[in-house]
Design a protein around this nucleic acid. Structure first.
Lengths: 154, 154
DNA sequence: CTATATAAGACTAAATATATCTTATATATC
DNA sequence: GATATATAAGATATATTTAGTCTTATATAG
């Protein structure tokens, strides 16, 4: 009952892109190195993010990925669900028809509540806020002052 | 990001026991049949529930399981976590030290919030309430009137 | 002592997650 | 157009987790 690595990697990828802002092109290689994600694995994740309309992928020389929306418009939930599908903490939440009587089932009701709360909490978090502050999964990227590790390096 | 079958089976097991009330001895076989759980798998799950102090296991002829506490005192959370361990929706929630900077990480904070909400919701659900009404994972067990499928059958 | 029931752990099978490899395709530059 | 570079897409491989079964041991009632 835990986020997969692919999901975690997807978050890192968008975090990194968010710091460059909407529309900025960043190579897969750079993202992979900065976020510590295997390049080929990142490619797969990027395809899912692309299909979900969160990023655009540019092929060819000097290709890479870029955000299609402003970081403030992208929720944590959207990124996660682009990769792992809609969150459902129990089978009966995602497929109520799989149960005999989920409409009146007390257990089902509890799972539904927990699921909704979780999705709401993840929905309320956007990448403008997330990327603005320090996060533990990326190379430090101070907003003002200090050394910017991404500058002067291709 | 979904409850395991073992967890689901554990809930069913306690639901069934809750309907018999605290201290009532019910054979593993009966529980397995009623809740549609493989008997040997149920044995494993019962051991975890026993270690967690939720049920007592009686060996020997006419053995079985029984609740150690009143159903109202047993939360959904307790049963689930007895089986799958403490819920942590992301690695950094359960092991903050695994991240470089989880103390100030914004992403970490969101996961923490979601995790706490979920655990609280599951904690607030107790088996007196859960078992009292109809649930979709058990053979119907009408509280008053009608046929009781558990009577007259060993 | 015998029949019955669970304990406990080994073992197997299946599903999923994680990662990599290969061939194809797209683009910039010469 | 040719070449170098970068990603696409799917096949493949590996590892981990989940799910389930089997075997031997132990406990209890009668």
């Amino acid at each position: 009952m835990r986020l997969t690595r692919a999901g975690e990697y997807g978050i890192r990828c968008i975090l990194h892109l968010a710091r460059h802002g909407k529309g900025a092109l960043v190579s897969r290689k750079e993202i992979a190195v900065r976020t510590d994600v295997p390049p080929h694995f990142l490619a797969k994740i990027a395809q899912q993010l692309s299909r979900a309309g969160i990023i655009e992928i540019l092929q060819g020389a000097n290709g890479g990925y870029r955000l299609l929306a402003d970081p403030a418009e992208i929720s944590l939930l959207a990124v996660i669900e682009a990769i792992i599908g809609e969150i459902s903490l129990n089978d009966c939440v995602g497929q109520p028809e799989s149960c005999r009587n989920s409409a009146v089932c007390t257990v089902h009701r509890v799972w539904n509540k927990g699921n909704q709360q979780l999705r709401k909490t993840l929905q309320e978090a956007n990448f403008a806020t997330l990327a603005d502050e320090d996060v533990c999964c990326l190379t430090p990227f101070p907003k003002t002052g200090g050394h910017n590790p991404l500058k002067g390096q291709k």
